[in-house]
Design a protein around this nucleic acid. Structure first.
Lengths: 237, 237
DNA sequence: TGGTGTGAATACTTTCACAGCC
DNA sequence: GGCTGTGAAAGTATTCACACCA
């Protein structure tokens, strides 16, 4: 068991382990080896063992990990053994989609406050809560003790919103705005940025202005059949 | 200028540089130093210089980088000097939100094919295109020469969809489904996973079952400093 | 026997620091 | 003087490989 701070890159992998373990549990698995889990996740078994070793010794030699027990350990480590209230700021198209996204609630997160700037949105009732003006962020976040904020406003408003959330006590921000947020130390930010994701993938695509045609050639049958786990490092082109 | 393959982690940062440079250009900047750009991005100047050095020598000593020229270089590197057609699979709530997200088109991506499974969605006309059944993926993707796919289907259907996209010629997949996709070598996958992002941030939050109260900070300065290796964190302001 | 946990080795990434050029 | 591009150093992360244990 390692001491010292846990690398953030390890922390970011834990939810993926948890997700896969829950899936295994639903399928009736009682136990799993690091090798089997690694196959499912497309990573190495050593990485899984090393990652888990930062937090304890959860496995049994010659046996593997007890699925239910490991799920519970991960939930405790990630503080997912409770429901987290979340503030959503921005109620345009994107904010509305987030507000109605059904996966937050079953995964430990409940949006309990929504803020908008536009008068047409303020006062609307969504999932039983009233959309409030952004001027109320500080007060409401503080009163509800909210620690997590989601930003879904235009990029030029995002920093101001982040400042208000932090002022109200938020310490974790999920940022859908295409802007780099500057926050004080101790505040965690994660970006959701599909545009950047797409723009980084096109690096690996050949630049074909001829976008028509049958597209058959470039992918061999052998390539298709030889499926491998998702690599972080796509093959050179 | 480095030779050999460019690290994927470098490629993933280029869109952020591009985004910030475009912003600077809109604000009228003609030139920028690595130090100024680094401040805006919350990274080090050395990292920016190193990253760019994989592709060429774009700066001028004692001067910095010409904004317009560097934008153009990055667009060429990332193959963004063209419009990419994209196939969207899944037209539930999430797929609909993606289909109507206004940021793809101005950033080089146009959804030109949409596929759904449910009969209630098939045949709908969205942005002038007809929603087709998923059985048509291979044929349509091939005919249009589409190289990029977006997956927005339930997790248990995602792998099957990925296989069909790849069979049709897709080589880059933006995956919104909470599943690890297994794809052949040479295919790039990026995940959009807000749940995992949230679940990794709660690691850094104290576990307070008492979610009410005034939200005043109960975390010590020492705790904040100790827990601070939090991923990609822009500098304090 | 089968599979963990972990030192040691390797691989990768970032940062330092400065020669060299505008 | 100011700032890039880049060797070299430092810092991180991953993988190997095996002692050890159920």
């Amino acid at each position: 068991m390692r001491n010292g701070p846990v690398p953030d890159i390890v922390v970011r992998r834990l939810p993926l382990y948890l997700r896969t373990l829950r899936q295994l549990q639903r399928e009736g698995h009682r136990t799993i080896s690091s090798e089997e889990l690694a196959q499912l996740l497309g990573v190495t078994a050593a990485q899984i063992r090393r990652d888990l070793s930062y937090f304890g010794r959860f496995g049994k030699q010659g046996y593997g990990y007890a699925v239910a027990a490991l799920i519970h350990e991960l939930e405790v480590i990630l503080h997912l053994d409770r429901l987290w209230n979340v503030a959503l700021v921005g109620y345009g198209k994107l904010g509305q989609a987030i507000a109605h996204y059904g996966e937050f609630e079953p995964n430990g997160f409940r949006i309990t406050a929504i803020f908008a700037k536009s008068p047409e949105h303020i006062g609307q009732i969504v999932n039983g809560i009233v959309v409030l003006p952004e001027t109320e962020i500080d007060r409401v976040v503080r009163e509800q003790g909210i620690r997590i904020g989601i930003i879904a406003v235009p990029p030029d408003a995002a920093q101001e919103v982040a400042d208000k959330l932090v002022a109200g006590g938020v310490r974790a921000i999920l940022n859908y705005a295409p802007t780099v947020l500057h926050v004080p130390p101790g505040i965690t930010v994660r970006e959701i940025d599909p545009i950047s994701a797409l723009q980084s993938m096109t690096f690996y695509l050949h630049d074909r202005h001829d976008a028509s045609g049958n597209g058959q050639d470039e992918q061999s049958f052998a390539d298709i059949m030889e499926r491998s786990p998702v690599g972080k490092r796509p093959a050179a082109h």
